[in-house]
Every structure is written in C-alpha cells, then in structure tokens.
C-alpha cells in the first residue's frame, strides 16, 4: 500500500503498542489537549502519534509538561525498569536542553553497569531546514549524536524505512535516536502491510551507477537523486547510497561502491557525518580513491530564517552538480 512517512510511523506505533504492553509513548502534545477535557487533540505536531490514546489509554500514551530533561530522564529510568518507551522530542534542537540525559545518562548505562543493563529506549525527533522554522527548530544533529559512544542513530528517507527502523530501534537494547525529516512527513512510498523491521547497519543502494558514489541520508537522498536524474540525461551514472543508520554505519556498502566508482561525494544537512564518512573511506579505502572525496554540507553558521538565506545555507542541487562534475569531469 502507499503511505506517507507520518502514516507509516503511525501504523508502526499502533502495531508495536498492540504487540507489547510494555511499549509506552510519551512527549509534548503527542496526545494534545491534555487537561482540557475535549477529547484527543493534535496527536503530535506531525500527527505521528494520532489515535494512540483512544486505543491504548492515557496510562501508556502520556502527554508531558514542557520539560525535556525530566521526561527524557523518565524515559531512561522506565527503560531500565521494564518498559519500552518511545519518547518524542519535538525538534532535535530541543536536545540542547536535555543533553545531559542523552549524552551522560542514556548513552552510558550499558558501560557503567558492566553490560548488565542498558536503556532500551527510542527517542523520536525531527530534523531539517527548508521551511523557515529558524535556527532553533531546523537543525540536523545526527552527525553530532553519532559521535557519542552508546547511542545509535537512524535517519530514514522513506516510509518503509521510517516504520522499519522504528521497529528495529524498539527491539534494540540500547538507546536509539530516530531522526525524521520535517520536510518528508508527507512523502509517500510503497509499504508492506506488516511493516517489516529494517536492520541497523545495512544501507541501501538507491540507484546504481559506475561514475561516482554519492552518500546521503534523509531528505538529501532525494536531492541527490534529482541531481542524478539531471546528470543521467548527459550520460552520467551516479550511484547513490543511503546508509539509513548513521551509527552503526554500513561501511562495507560504502566501500564497495567507492571501490567500483573511485569517486565519492557526501551530501548532508548536519555537521560531522560527511567528515566521518570521508575520514573512514580515506582510512579504510584509500587505494580505491581516484580523487580526493568531496563533501557538500551547509555553511558553518546557525540556520538563517529568511527563505533566500536558508536556501543558501542548505546544500543545493547546483553545489552537488558542481562537486560531481569536478570529480568526474564535464
């Protein structure tokens, strides 16, 4: 069936909560209208948690005060004591206020307990610029998050992956951050009815080509694909790899592709991920490279509000075309 990313995620929530009573969902306005007595409200600002409270009750679908530190910490403690929480942090920018709970608490329990326990919690959050949400509702922090030992990070680019990665995330013993792009929620795609889990650390070849490898996640997969369409008209064959999870990272797939093409461009909306891929390819696949890899990433500034400036900040199709052409020649 065809579903949008928000519909696929919503369906996955229903299936997961149905299958296991230990699964709970919490966050700000995920039910909506709490305390007003007028029935269900928003179902989350992007509708992902819509309908859950009617089916599973307010005991398991919990609207919280605007207190990210407290409720992310509550998620951690609940995961350590028998529940399987899915915690929504409305925008990944808000992780700035609960950094301690994510970096110091959730990420470290496995090691600090000597491996006896961990934190089987999923944090769902959004990323992505492009809609003038401004500097504090638009960032992409997967590059940063993936640097913290103990965290796993997934960035789906389509409905099947979004639902499948959520399922795998909830089965994982460790804290997982699922980063959903704000600009992709309405993107539709074919999805199997049972929403099969998508394994971590297994990327996907989005399109095959032998001239150059582009590595991208989330919305940048689609931007890269448009560029590849244009270049195909001139006979250029671009291979696009979507690793789907940032940590763990499918280096085998990336290296296999670079072995074939000898050329690499990483396109990303965050800081850190492109650097990480290029560093590892240089270390682990230097002999495959026929030219120095390139990255197409945002300007090193906070995200501006004015639409023209925001587009200037974001990696553009034109920049990707330029990077590709510099590597493969006109």
């Amino acid at each position: 069936m065809m579903l949008s990313i928000s519909e696929a995620l919503n369906k996955a929530h229903h299936q997961l909560m149905e299958a296991d009573e230990r699964v709970i969902v919490m966050g700000e306005d995920i039910v909506g209208g709490a305390g007003l007595g007028k029935g269900e409200g928003l179902g989350g600002v992007f509708g992902v948690t819509s309908g859950l409270v009617d089916k599973f009750g307010a005991n398991r679908v919990i609207d919280t005060p605007i207190s990210e530190t407290a409720f992310v910490g509550m998620g951690i403690g609940s995961a350590m004591t028998g529940l399987k929480p899915i915690v929504e942090v409305m925008f990944c920018d808000f992780m700035g206020v609960c950094f301690d709970q994510i970096f110091n608490q959730a990420a470290k329990v496995r090691l600090l307990s000597g491996g006896r326990i961990s934190v089987p919690m999923v944090i769902r959050t959004t990323l992505g610029a492009g809609d003038s949400s401004g500097a504090m509702h638009s960032q992409a922090l997967h590059g940063l998050l993936a640097t913290a030992p103990g965290l796993k990070v997934a960035c789906p680019s389509n409905p099947a992956d979004a639902a499948g990665l959520l399922k795998t995330a909830l089965e994982d013993d460790d804290p997982v951050i699922l980063m959903e792009h704000k600009g992709l929620y309405s993107l539709e795609g074919e999805v199997a009815d049972d929403l099969p889990p998508v394994p971590f650390g297994e990327g996907q070849v989005i399109r095959e080509g032998c001239d150059i490898t582009i590595v991208a996640v989330s919305r940048m997969v689609h931007v890269a694909n448009q560029v590849a369409d244009v270049l195909a008209q001139g006979g250029g064959e671009v291979e696009i790899i979507d690793p789907r999870t940032i940590m763990p990272l499918d280096m085998n797939l990336i290296l296999k592709s670079v072995q074939k093409t000898g050329k690499l461009v990483v396109v990303d909306e965050s800081f850190g991920f492109a650097e990480m891929v290029i560093s590892r390819v240089s270390e682990e696949g230097f002999g495959y490279l026929k030219a120095a890899p390139k990255k197409v990433i945002p300007l090193h500034t906070p995200i501006p509000y004015a639409p023209g400036l925001e587009q200037e900040w974001l990696p553009s199709e034109a920049q990707i075309v330029t990077a590709v052409k510099e590597l493969v020649g006109e």
């Binding site: 709970i24 005991n59 398991r60 919990i62 530190t69 407290a70 409720f71 992310v72 910490g73 509550m74 998620g75 951690i76 403690g77 609940s78 995961a79 350590m80 004591t81 028998g82 529940l83 929480p85 301690d100 709970q101 110091n104 608490q105 329990v109 600090l112 307990s113």
Partner: peptide, 22 residues
C-alpha cells in the same frame, strides 16, 4: 544507579516510578 552529574539521577527515578505505575 548513582550518578556523577549533580541532580542527574533524579529524572531517572521518575522513570522507575512510571514503570511501577504502568
């Protein structure tokens, strides 16, 4: 758990309370 961050342990206990409740 005990904790190296002053106050960091407090939200965690609310999670244990939530588990007990649910």
């Amino acid at each position: 758990s005990s904790n190296g961050i002053v106050g960091g342990q407090v939200p965690m206990a609310s999670g244990a309370a939530l588990s007990a409740k649910v």
